[in-house]
Nucleic acid binder design. Sequence first.
DNA 1: CTACTTCCGGAAAGCGCTTGCCAACTGAAA
DNA 2: TTTCAGTTGGCAAGCGCTTTCCGGAAGTAG
Lengths: 359, 359
Amino acid sequence: MAASTLTEVARLAGVSPATASRVLNGSARKPGKDIAERVRQAADSLGYIPNAQAQGLAKSSSGLIGLIVHDIADPYFAAIARGVQEAAREQRKMVLLATTGGGPAEEKEAVAAFAARRADSIVIAGSRSCRDEDRDGNTELAAELDRYCRNGGQVAVVGHPVVGATATEGYHVVKVPNQELARQLASGLAEGWDGDFVVVGGPEGLLTSDDRVRGFQEGLERAGRRPAEVLRTGFNRSGGYDAGLQLAARIKAARSGEAPAPRLCIFAVNDVMAIGAAAALRSEGLRIPRDAAIAGFDDIETLRDFRPALSTVRLPLEDIGRIATRSTGPGNHTEEAQGAAADGITGEVTLRRSTEAAA
Amino acid sequence: MAASTLTEVARLAGVSPATASRVLNGSARKPGKDIAERVRQAADSLGYIPNAQAQGLAKSSSGLIGLIVHDIADPYFAAIARGVQEAAREQRKMVLLATTGGGPAEEKEAVAAFAARRADSIVIAGSRSCRDEDRDGNTELAAELDRYCRNGGQVAVVGHPVVGATATEGYHVVKVPNQELARQLASGLAEGWDGDFVVVGGPEGLLTSDDRVRGFQEGLERAGRRPAEVLRTGFNRSGGYDAGLQLAARIKAARSGEAPAPRLCIFAVNDVMAIGAAAALRSEGLRIPRDAAIAGFDDIETLRDFRPALSTVRLPLEDIGRIATRSTGPGNHTEEAQGAAADGITGEVTLRRSTEAAA
DNA sequence: CTACTTCCGGAAAGCGCTTGCCAACTGAAA
DNA sequence: TTTCAGTTGGCAAGCGCTTTCCGGAAGTAG
C-alpha cells in the first residue's frame, strides 16, 4: 500500500505539509486562494487519498461506527443495518460490521475490536439475554462497554440495556415496546378468536422474546382469556418449524378425538419463526387459517408477500437502526434526538389473513 | 478516547515499549518468559487495548475488508454478506460495509473510502452495469480500482469484471454462470410447458440481468421454442410488481378473447422480482400456477417458504461471498483457492410448484 | 581464559497526519 | 513613518505502535 502521501503533495505544490493538510482535509484555517489551488492540483495529479488511519491517529477519532448483529442474513437485522447505514452516511462515517450469533462472549469481543479500531460509536442490535449461562458473558460485555464509554465512546443498544452495564455517559437505549405491542396484538386476536392460544417463544431468558410472551399473556388476561401455553424453541425459522411440527401433531390428534376441539391460534414471537411454524403445519397437510391461525412479530418486509398474509406487529426496523445510530452521533443532544430515542419506537398491530376467524 | 497505551503498559511493567509490543502484539521475537508475564499482567490491569489505527499505520495494513453491496437489506446481498463475514473472521479481519444503491459513482466513492482506510481487500457484490449513462462512472470506478490494486490492494468482484478495469495483480473475479444456468432453467421449463414465455428483466445494461435473459432465450431456442418477449423493469420487488400488473392485464384480456390463449410462463430474473410479480398477479385475482407459471433466480432463503413454492435457480450465495473474500486473502495462491475462484460457482435449477403445468 | 556466536532488551527512527505555536507579513490606524 | 492587530505559512511536536539496529549478556567452543 504505497499511495502518495500528504508530504509528497506538499512538496510538489511547494508548500509545507501543514498547509497542504489545511487545504485538503478541512481545517478551521483556510489558506490563501492561489496556494489552495496549487495544493489541490498537486493532490489531483498524484491521485492523493488521505490515509484515514493516520488522520484517525492524529485526531483520535476514526469516523467508524460499529454495528453488532446476530446474523446479517436475518432480514430483521438486515433491515436495521440498512437504517444504521443510512444514518452513518448522514454523519459521513463508515459502518464496521460484526456478527456474533448472539452470544455475549462474541459480543464482548466485537466491542473490544471496535474499541481497538477506535470506533466513534457502537450500535448493538441483537436481543439481550439473561440466561444463567450467559451471566458471566454479560458481565464481561458490560465491563467492556463501560470501559468503552469511559474512554469517550458512544453506545446505543436496541431494545434492552445490556444486563449489568452501568455507564451513563454516552450510553443510549432505544426502547422497543415489545411487551405493550404484544399485549395489543393479543387483544386484537382475542376479539376475533374463541379458540385457545399457544405461544411459540424463543429460549427463556431472551429478553425480547420474554417481553413479547409476557405482553401477550397480559393481553389475553385483560381480554378475559386463559393464559396461553408457551413452547420454548429456537428464536429462528427452524425453531418455529420444530414447534410447528409439534403443534401439527397435536391439532391432528385433537381433530380425531370425539369433541371437535376449537382451533388453535399460534403466536410466534417473531415473523421468521411464524413462517417456520406455518411451513411445518403446511407440510403436515394443515391449512392456515382454516386449521389454525398464526401470528408473528416484526413485519419483515420480505415476508409481506407470504400467503396467507401474516398477522404481525409492524416494527419500523429501519427507523430503529437510524435512531439508534443518530443517538450516538454528534448533535445527539438536540431535542428531537433525545426525544426520538427516549420515546422509543412505536409499532402497529397488523391483522391479516393468517388469523382470520372465518376459515 | 483516552484508553491506556502501550507505553503506559511498558512503564508499568518496567520494560521498553519495544518489548511490550513484542509480547502483546505478536512478533517474530518472543521475549523471555518472566518478562512476558509481567507485561501481560500490566496490560491486563490497565485494560490495555491496542490501538488498531496506530498498528495499521506502523504496519501499513489495517485488517479491514471492504464490502460493497447495493442494499444490505436485500436478502441476496445479505446472504453474500454473511459469507464475506465468515471468511473475514477466518482471516481475523473486520468487515467495512458500504451500500451504494448500485451506481458506479457511489461505488467509486466507496472504493476511495476503503482505500483511505487502507482496507486490505475489497469485495464488490453488486451487479455491473454497462448502460450508457454509467459509462463515465464505470471508467472512474475502474481507475479507482486500478489505483487501489496498484497500491497493493486486493479486489474481488462477484459476477462480472468491472467494465474497463485493467488491473491484473490482485484483481479477482468470481464467475457466476448466470447465462448457463438460465439456459438450463429454460430447458427445464420448456419440457413441461407448451404456452408462451415472458421474461421480466432488469434495466438493459445490467449485466447480471442481461446474462440471465440471454441464457434463457438460448435455452428456449435450443428447445425449439420461439423467443420470449422481454419486459424491462426495475431489478427489485417493485419492478417485478409493476411487470406483474401489466402481465395480469394481458392475461385477463387474452382470457376474455375468443380463442383460449395458452397460459403464460413468466421468468423473472431474480427471486425478489418474481415474488413481486406473483403478488401483482394475485392482487389481480390470478392464481399461480393455474393462470400463469412463474420462475425466479437466486433461491433466496427467506423466500423458500413462499407458496406456491417458487421455481428458481439455486445459487450458493453464502459460498459466493466466502469464496470472493478468500480469493483476496492471504494464501490465495493455493490450488484450492485459485480453483474455487476460477471454476466459479455452480448453481442448480430447482423446479417447484410455481411452474407446474397441471394447475 | 579467550574468541565467537546467539539471544534479548532497549533506543530510536519512522508510519502519515494534525495542530499549537511562532515568525513574518499585511494593512490600517495613529 | 511607527504601531498594533490580524493573517498566513511553516516548524515541530506529537498521536500509538512497529521494527531495525545496537550493545551487552549469556552460551559454546577452542
